[in-house]
Simulated assay, not measured.
Amino acid sequence: MEGDLGQFLRSRRARIHPADAGLPASGRRRVSGLRREEVALLAGVSVDYYIRLEQERVQNVSDAVLDAVARVLRMDDTERAHLRDLLRPARHVSRPVLRPGLGRLLDLADGMPAFVLGPRMDVLAWNALADRVSGFAGVPEGRRNQLLQVFLAPHTRTLYRDWPEVAAETVAYLRLYAGRHPEDPLLAGLVAELSAAPDFVRLWAEHGVAEKTYGTKRMRHPELGDLDFEYETLAVPGQPDLVIVMYTADPESATGRTVARLREEIGSSRELARSGRG
Rank of each mutant, 00 (worst) to 15 (best):
V166P: 09
E183W: 11
R143L: 14
D131R: 01
T156G: 02
M121Y: 13
H181F: 11
L129M: 06
L159E: 03
F136C: 02
D162E: 13
A172C: 09
P182V: 09
V139C: 06
L159I: 05
D122L: 08
R144N: 05
R180A: 15
A172N: 09
G135M: 03
G138A: 15
P185M: 05
L124M: 15
R143Y: 07
N127E: 09
R132N: 01
T156Q: 14
L174C: 03
R180I: 00
T156A: 08
A178Y: 11
Y177N: 01
P154M: 04
T156H: 08
F151H: 00
Q146M: 14
L174T: 05
Q149L: 15
Y173T: 01
N145L: 03
N145G: 07
L159P: 02
L159S: 02
V123R: 05
R157S: 02
M121G: 01
R180T: 03
W163Q: 04
M121Q: 13
L124V: 12
A128T: 13
Y177E: 06
L159W: 05
Y160M: 07
Q146E: 14
E141N: 05
S134N: 14
A172W: 13
Y177Q: 02
A130M: 04
D122Q: 10
H181R: 15
E183A: 11
F136W: 15
Q146W: 07
A125Y: 01
G135D: 11
P185R: 12
L124E: 02
L176R: 15
E165S: 13
Q146I: 12
R161S: 14
Q149T: 10
P182T: 03
A167Y: 00
V150G: 01
A167C: 11
V139M: 08
W126R: 12
V150D: 03
P182D: 01
P154H: 12
A128N: 00
E183I: 11
P185E: 13
G179E: 06
G142N: 06
P140R: 07
Y177V: 00
L174D: 04
P140Q: 09
G135C: 02
V133L: 09
R144T: 10
L152W: 00
R157D: 03
W126M: 12
A130K: 06
A130S: 15
G135I: 05
A167D: 00
G135F: 10
